[in-house]
Amino acid sequence: MALSNIANALLGGVLIGGAATLFFWLTGRIAGISGVIASLLFFKERLWPALFLSGIVAGAAIFYALGGSAPVPRGSFPLWLLAFSGVLVGFGTALARGCTSGHGVCGLGRLSLRSLVATLTFLSVGLLATFVVRHIFGVV
């Protein structure tokens, strides 16, 4: 594994944590993406969620415009499996009220036991799901 991968991962993580810090300090809100999406979809205050999510798209766009690599679609990944996983991610994060950002980055930062349990749960189930899909069903 290239050292630059680790450096990018670490620096990217610090930026994510830094953004979550600024967001919390300035607006008093937790920068959890699934919560922000739910706000945009279902609640009256739509301006700040729309701006925050637009910022995320713009930030990624800047990275790609500067020559950062964007993902290439997998050739053989089954469409129905992708759709199924999308519904699970949406429904699951709504039910658990948090995803990798809300429970992972912010919840762990607040030393929340609830978020620690959530993070350990989705990480361990994620490991298992990847194992089953890749090594038992042979989907890559």
Binding site: I33, S34, I37, L53, I56, V57, G59, A60, F77, L81, L82, F84, S85, G86, V87, L88, V89, G90, F91, G92, T93, A94, L95, A96, R97, C99, T100, S101, H103, R114, V117, A118, T119, T121, F122, L123, S124, V125, G126, L127, L128, A129, T130, F131, V133
Partner: peptide, 24 residues
């Protein structure tokens, strides 16, 4: 919390997408 996180983990582990990157 537990069921939701398990469902999320399943979806994440299948496709590799979580909400933030999906938006980005």
């Amino acid at each position: 919390l537990l069921i939701g996180s398990a469902l999320f983990g399943t979806g994440w582990g299948i496709s590799g997408y979580c909400p933030g990157p999906a938006v980005a």
